[in-house]
Design a protein around this nucleic acid. Structure first.
Ligand code: FE
Length: 904
DNA sequence: AAGAAAAAAAAA
């Protein structure tokens, strides 16, 4: 083998060799490696994000082209023997030791091609050169493009292979240097700049690789087409890349200038105080954190969008991602943003609005705005998008949640953003999606300790990447607000902490490099409330209270803490002759949604007096986001913030007259005596002790409410929250359980801290536990759950339950949706398996075969439960976690109930 | 004794 390669044999290495039939014109069974590298480099250079890395486009092109240098190895080339580069390597050997081309790439870049790559690196203003470890950080970023970071160090190459390979690696580097002619990159004086480059480069590489690997956009060419590699790049790759980026929906979208709130929301005539404040408040110049605490109904979402637009218009951000705690709220927010998002951009731009969560493609609204896949023809999509008011999402961005994060405007679950700071595959793509955008997190108060800690990590990461964030919340405790602010400032490398002192509510906290500013805000006129608190400690009093209100024709709700209590109370009230509705999460989704619709119709804004005369017994499902209004409200004791949330459902709307005219919330709770014994809560509310683990928090909540006797909003809210959160006030009898709960919280925090990515470690295997067997989750589950899909045998076939409830779901193309609408989630210890009779085995297998692979294969995660109709309703059968027989009863009114079989 | 909530595969 020669030391240097002078012929054209380099062009025979393949980079891709899986031709798809539909591709434009198939003239080659493989795509030369050099062509692919140049394709991807061209995409990277032309992506709008490339401007934010602080590199010259020639330097960037060079770095990113090298991402697949590891594909030169015999190990990789032998994967498709028909395409083996005989011109270079001679005959294809029968056996090759397999290795990963990302790790091989890192080794080639960091060791074998060190000298050849030297011209890429130069000295900084102080004359300091690149250190080997600094260089390695760059190579790790481009080489680790398979979803997780690579480690190199150990040389896995056989000596013979290395000898064979090195000349081609050297030649490849020479060819690329000749094309890009990069000026040397000055060494970095500040570690944080290099770290930011490393993370951003890693994300950009993968993003460009995904686009550049799409065959419809980059049809395979022949080795002779890259004989002039430079010509290929300038005349071919760059043009293709330009078109591909347009088709992907990632062409630059120009931000419109901010011209006042009225431009964004023409339908809002009078702006609320919080909106007015954020329209004019002066923001810090650098990355900014804005924490907005205000009541529901204050218009804080619009206020946040105004702030986001201002940050974008001043050049701080290129887009927006809105994160919500649930898929349902994300879907609703998508609809709201659909009206406004185009005004954030100039009319000539074509920004996409994407929905990012696990079930986005089941949302009809989102699917309806997806552009047709314009892989082959990008004129169709242009047409649809010309209307500047039209909502649109490119097919490429809309097809998957990681890509959805890359859209100019995204809406999704917070989990999608949190995965950017967890060691999950392609976390860097999520980071790239969030980088440079305003991260808007709604309902920030709703997070448990585990998610709070992830949120802290996300803010730190986002700030370090130069991003701004807006957090929306009801009242946060001071310590939580302080934590979030500190995290953001740590990301900005501001070690000195800023003290927050303001106890006003509503409140806006503005945080930047120079410190924090707290801006109290007036409450929206008409939102102030004064609700009397009445405590009752025996069930019969509450029952009487409810019956009495119902007899007067009032809209009554009782929020109970456990599903079993919901069902028990509902049945007890029915026995007294009341008309009762039941609402909780243990229903097949199709039935739950039907109940939700009815609840909204009766108790929402448009319910008539006749509709409203009804009793609703519900679990925590009505606590959040549903716009409901009751004349009379009861609730089981819960932590203070939740009681306040629930109280928000009392007389929420403007109504001319009410059958019961009294601003009072009735709390079912043991009396908060001065020296409660350990059974204080469980004696009255046995289930509650298991749901809300800290009895001291419950006790303080009850005590504070009893002492104040009212919930006055907004001025009393902070006080209520802070006093209930005062952990120094724990009575002896509750000490043990309270400590235990606190320990659980600490453990959850610890688990999150162990899981999250360490920004400062860079994109290395050391940045987190990347190699762990178990999937790392965005939420901590205290106990395992199973997903039960309800099915019914009909005509020898298993039908999803939902298809029998709604005929529109009975058609084949709705099958996937029908199955997800037939799901109920239950604790695994109550139901762990559903046996199938021999005669039904085949039909069940046929049904499961229609499920996606992971649903089908995770047999203990996804159960198919067959229901059959009996005189007492729908019944089924299964085993609980201990393998004991259980009977299942499903009812559209009460939901899914499991009972251990009585041994006669 | 136990609420509600999300994720998820391949292949770059
Ligand atoms: Fe690649």
């Amino acid at each position: 083998m020669p030391d240097t390669v002078e012929d054209n044999s380099l062009n025979f290495f393949w980079g891709k060799a899986r031709p798809v039939a539909e591709a434009e014109e198939v003239i080659s069974s493989m795509h030369p490696l050099i062509a692919h590298m140049l394709d991807v480099a061209a995409v990277a250079i032309l992506l709008p994000e490339s401007k934010c890395l602080g590199l010259d486009c020639r330097q960037l092109g060079m770095l990113i082209a090298l991402h697949d240098i590891g594909k030169l190895t015999p190990a990789f080339q032998s994967k498709v023997p028909e395409c083996w580069p005989e011109q270079a390597f001679g005959r294809c050997p029968d056996e090759v030791v397999m290795s990963r081309h990302d790790a091989d790439g890192l080794f080639l870049l960091d060791h074998i091609c060190k000298d050849q790559l030297a011209p890429l690196f130069g000295t900084n203003a102080d004359g300091l050169d690149w250190s080997p470890t600094d260089k390695k950080q760059l190579w790790r970023a481009v080489a680790g493009h398979h979803g997780q970071p690579v480690s190199s160090d150990e040389n896995k190459f056989q000596n013979a292979d290395l000898k064979l390979l090195a000349p081609y690696a050297h030649k490849l580097v020479r060819v690329l240097l000749d094309i890009f002619r990069p000026p040397p990159i000055p060494s970095y004086s500040f570690l944080e700049d290099l770290l930011q480059l490393e993370w951003r480069l890693a994300g950009l590489t993968v993003q460009a690789d995904w686009i550049g690997s799409r065959q419809e956009w980059f049809p395979y060419v022949r080795p002779e087409d890259v004989a002039d590699a430079s010509g290929y790049f300038w005349n071919h790759a760059l043009h293709r890349a330009q078109a591909a980026i347009a088709s992907a929906g990632l062409s630059p979208a120009n931000i419109s200038p901010f011209q006042g709130m009225a431009r964004l929301f023409p339908h809002i005539c009078n702006s609320s105080p919080i909106q007015a404040l954020l329209e004019v408040a002066s923001f810090p110049a650098d990355p900014t954190l804005i924490v907005i605490e205000d009541m529901t109904g204050s218009g804080k979402t619009e206020a946040a969008l105004v702030a986001a637009h201002r940050l974008m218009a001043s050049g701080h951000a290129s887009g927006l991602f809105v994160a919500l705690p649930t898929m349902a709220t994300a879907n609703a927010m998508f609809d709201r943003l659909a009206i406004a998002y185009r005004s954030l951009f100039q009319p000539s731009s074509h920004p996409s609005l994407a929905l990012a969560h696990g079930r986005a493609l089941l949302d009809e609204r989102f699917v309806s705005v997806l552009a047709p896949d314009d892989a082959l023809d990008n004129t169709t999509v242009k047409k649809g998008r010309d209307d500047a008011a039209e909502v649109c999402c490119s097919a490429w961005l809309g097809s998957e949640s990681r890509r959805a994060l890359l859209a100019q405007v995204g809406v999704g679950t917070i989990d999608q953003a949190l995965m950017a700071v967890l060691p999950v595959r392609f976390a860097t793509v999520r980071q790239a999606g969030l980088a440079g955008k305003v991260l808007l997190v709604d309902e920030c108060h709703a997070y448990d300790p585990y998610m709070q800690e992830e949120m802290v990590a996300l803010l730190r990461f986002h700030a370090a990447m130069g991003g701004s964030a807006i957090l929306l919340s009801a009242t946060l405790t001071k310590s939580v607000r302080q934590k979030l602010v500190t995290a953001f400032r740590e990301g900005l490398r501001q070690k000195e902490s800023v003290g927050l002192s303001c106890m006003a509510y509503p409140l806006v906290t503005l945080v930047g490099r120079d410190g924090a500013e707290e801006l109290p805000c007036a409450p929206r006129p008409g939102l102030a409330r004064n609700i009397a608190v009445r405590q009752m400690s025996d069930a019969s009093s509450i029952m009487a209270y409810v019956s009495d209100a119902a007899a007067q024709g009032a809209a009554v709700a009782w929020v109970r803490n456990t599903v079993d209590d919901v069902i028990t109370s509902a049945k007890a009230l029915e026995a007294e002759g009341l008309d009762v509705m039941v609402f909780h999460a243990r229903f097949a989704m199709v039935d739950r949604l039907a109940i939700e619709r009815e609840v909204l119709a009766r108790f929402g804004k448009n319910g008539t007096t006749a509709d409203r005369s009804r009793v609703l017994i519900a679990s925590q499902v009505i606590e959040q986001s549903l716009d409901l209004d009751f004349d009379v409200l009861c609730t089981d004791l819960a932590p203070m913030d939740l009681i306040i949330q629930r109280a928000g459902r009392l007389r929420r709307h403007e109504r001319a007259q009410r059958p019961v005219d009294c601003d009072e919330i009735c709390i079912f709770s043991p009396n908060p005596v001065a020296d409660p014994d350990p059974q204080w809560i469980s004696r009255v509310l046995p289930g509650t002790a298991a749901v809300y683990r800290d009895p001291a928090l419950l006790w303080r909540t009850a005590k504070v409410l009893q002492c104040k006797g009212q919930i006055r909003s907004p001025d009393m809210i902070r006080e209520l929250i802070e006093e209930a959160a005062d952990t120094s006030d724990v009575p002896n009898g509750l000490m043990m359980a309270s400590d235990e709960a606190e320990g659980k919280g600490r453990a959850a925090r610890g688990a999150a801290i162990r899981n999250i990515l360490n920004y400062d470690a860079g994109y290395t295997p050391d940045s987190a536990l990347w190699e762990r067997e178990v999937r790392i989750s965005t939420r901590l589950e205290e106990r395992p759950y199973v997903t039960v899909r309800l099915g019914v045998m009909k005509d020898g076939q298993v039908w999803p339950w939902a298809a029998l409830q709604q005929t529109s779901l009975a058609v084949p193309h709705e099958r996937k949706r029908a199955w997800t609408l037939s799901e109920v989630s239950v604790a695994q210890h109550t139901l762990a398996a559903c046996p199938v009779a021999d005669t039904q085995m085949e039909a069940v297998a046929a049904a499961r075969a229609e499920w996606s692979r992971w649903e089908r294969e995770a047999e203990d995660q996804f159960l198919l439960l067959l229901l059959h109709e009996t005189e007492e309703g729908w019944k089924g059968f299964g085993f609980n976690g201990k393998g004991q027989d259980v009977d299942i009863c499903y009812d559209k009114k009460y939901g899914f109930q499991i009972s251990k079989r009585n041994l006669a």
